[in-house]
C-alpha cells in the first residue's frame, strides 16, 4: 500500500491507474489509500461537465484538455458512462472522442461505469478525483452520464460546473429550469452552428436574468423594510452563487470554436471562487457532506455485520410475518447493544 502511494506521488501512471481501480472496486485498503492521499490534494481545479446525452460533452472535454495542454498544464479526466442494470456490464465509449490528446500521457483519461450501488457513484468519483489531484494534475475534468440525479451529485465534486445545452431544445430548456439552473456556473450552448442556437442562448440568458431580477427586487424591498415575505422568498431563490451570474457561452466543440472563450469563463469563475471566499465555503460544504456520507456507509456496515452475526434478516422477516414482532422492535433490538456500547465509551 505504501509503495502504491509512493509510486503515485512519484508520477507513475500505472500506480495512479491502480489506485483508481482500488477506489472504484472499494477493494480492501482503499480507505487507507484515500486517507493517505488526502494531504496531497487541494491544488487542482475541478471542473464538472454535464448535460443531456449527445450534447457533445466528450468532444468538448477533448478540446478543453487540448487547450489546457497547449498552455502547458496537465489534465486528468474522469468520464462516466451508464452501466446495464441487468448484467452490470457496460461499454464505455467516451474515450473514442479524445482524438486531439490521444497518445499524450499527460492527459490521464479514465472511464468509469456508473455501477450505481454500494457507496454510490459520487463517493467513488470524488475519491478518484482526489487521486488525480494528489498525482499533481492542474485541471481535473469530470464528465457525467447523460442524465439523472448524478448531475446534481457533480456539484459535490466540482469547483466549477458547466452545463451543456444543445441548441433548439426550447422544451428541454424549460424542463431544465428547476434543477440545472441552480447547479450551472457556466452554460455552454454547444453545436452553436446549428439553427436555433441563438434562441437557446437567449432563453438561457432570460432565465438567468429573471432569477436575478427576483433577487434585486427583493433586496430593494428589504432596504425599504416593506415586504418581509418578498425578502424571504428571495432568500429561498438565491442559490450558492450569490455574486456570480452564470455565464452563457457558445461553442462548436467539433472544430474548437469558442473553446478559448469557455476556458476564460472557467478561469474567471475560479478567480471569483478564490476572491469571494466562496470556494472555501464550497469546500467546507463538500467536506461536511463527505463526512456524513462516510458515516452513513460505516454505520450501515456496522449494522449489516450485526445482522449477519444474528443469522441474517430472513428470520426476522418470518417473525414479522407471523406477527410475533414488528420492524420497529427488530430495529430497536439490533441497535440497542450498539447504542449501549457507544454510550459506555462516551461516559467512560
Amino acid at each position: 500500500m505504501g509503495d502504491l502511494i509512493d509510486d503515485l506521488l512519484a508520477g507513475k501512471h500505472r500506480a495512479l491507474a491502480r489506485a483508481i481501480t482500488k477506489i472504484e472496486n472499494r477493494s480492501p485498503g482503499y480507505r487507507d489509500l484515500v486517507s493517505d492521499l488526502y494531504q496531497h490534494t487541494g491544488d487542482a481545479d475541478v471542473i464538472g461537465i454535464t448535460g443531456s446525452p449527445g450534447a457533445g460533452k466528450s468532444t468538448l472535454v477533448d478540446k478543453l484538455a487540448k487547450t489546457y495542454r497547449d498552455e502547458g498544464l496537465t489534465v486528468g479526466v474522469i468520464a462516466i458512462d451508464p452501466s446495464s442494470p441487468f448484467t452490470g456490464g457496460s461499454v464505455l465509449g467516451d474515450r473514442i472522442r479524445m482524438a486531439s490528446v490521444s497518445g499524450d500521457m499527460d492527459v490521464f483519461f479514465r472511464s468509469m461505469s456508473a455501477r450505481g450501488s454500494l457507496g454510490g457513484l459520487s463517493t467513488a468519483t470524488a475519491d478518484a478525483v482526489k487521486a488525480l489531484d494528489a498525482f499533481g494534475k492542474d485541471k481535473v475534468i469530470v464528465e457525467t452520464v447523460g442524465a439523472g440525479q448524478n448531475e446534481i451529485d457533480i456539484v459535490k465534486t466540482a469547483d466549477t460546473v458547466a452545463v451543456l445545452v444543445p441548441p433548439g431544445s426550447g422544451d428541454d430548456v424549460q424542463m431544465l429550469k428547476a434543477g440545472i439552473l441552480e447547479i450551472g456556473d457556466v452554460f455552454v450552448v454547444n453545436k452553436a452552428d446549428l439553427p436555433g442556437s441563438d434562441r437557446t442562448v437567449m432563453e438561457l440568458r432570460e432565465m438567468i436574468d429573471t432569477r436575478n431580477d427576483y433577487t434585486q427586487t427583493a433586496e430593494h424591498h428589504d432596504a425599504d423594510a416593506a415586504s418581509e415575505a418578498a425578502a424571504v422568498e428571495a432568500m429561498a431563490r438565491e442559490t450558492d452563487d450569490e455574486g456570480w451570474t452564470p455565464q452563457v457561452v457558445e461553442t462548436v466543440a467539433e472544430d474548437g470554436t469558442g473553446v478559448e472563450g469557455l476556458i476564460e469563463t472557467l478561469a474567471n469563475h475560479a478567480t471569483y471562487l478564490e476572491e469571494s471566499g466562496k470556494g472555501e465555503e464550497r469546500a467546507r460544504q463538500r467536506y461536511a457532506e463527505e463526512i456524513r456520507t462516510l458515516l452513513r456507509e460505516d454505520v450501515n456496515q456496522l449494522v449489516a455485520g450485526e445482522l449477519r452475526s444474528r443469522g441474517g434478516i430472513d428470520e426476522y422477516v418470518e417473525r414479522v410475518l407471523d406477527r410475533e414482532t414488528d420492524p420497529y422492535a427488530v430495529a430497536d433490538e439490533l441497535v440497542a447493544p450498539i447504542e449501549d456500547c457507544v454510550e459506555a465509551e462516551r461516559d467512560g
Binding site: G88, G89, L92, S113
Partner: peptide, 10 residues
Amino acid sequence: RDAGFEVIYS
C-alpha cells in the same frame, strides 16, 4: 458487456 464486463472501446 452482456457478460457483465466493463468494456472500453478504442
